[in-house]
Design a protein around this nucleic acid. Structure first.
Length: 114
DNA sequence: CATTTGACATCTT
DNA sequence: TAAGATGCCAAAT
């Protein structure tokens, strides 16, 4: 697995939707290797052509990087600009989580979460 | 060539 | 529900 493979998957994430690290790893063909996804993204530049801002952790939150370049804030801003509403500093994955089969259904779970 | 570091996820306490 | 520990791979030094 290489960073390139991960980037390829991240590119497939449509605007207004988000994917988790684990999900991206799985789609890249490496389930269970969510960390590598984050590490790969860390190598990206803020203005990279990759929509890295659409990748969040399993909790729907933006992972804090060691070297806080304010990127975390930028990420949140970009997501909000794409129509994603944050809830308690988190993205309601039930509602925005992207799936390669998104044409199927977007989990119409009537659960109001917690 | 070996060691260290780095955007996470999942299980257990 | 929250916090701590463990597994994993690639790139940089």
């Amino acid at each position: 697995m290489t960073h390139a493979e991960i980037f390829a998957v991240v590119r497939r994430i449509p605007a207004g939707r988000v994917a988790t690290y684990g999900q991206v790893a799985a789609l890249a063909g490496h389930p269970g290797h969510a960390r590598q996804v984050g590490y790969a993204l860390s190598a990206l530049h803020a203005d990279s052509p990759i929509p890295w801002h659409r990748v969040v952790n399993a909790q729907g939150a933006i992972s804090a990087r060691t070297t806080d370049s304010g990127g975390a804030l930028v990420q949140r801003i970009r997501l909000e600009q794409e129509g994603i509403a944050f809830r308690g500093g988190r993205v309601p994955l039930k509602q925005y989580r992207w799936s390669p089969d998104e044409h199927a259904v977007r989990r119409p779970t009537r659960r109001t979460a917690r």
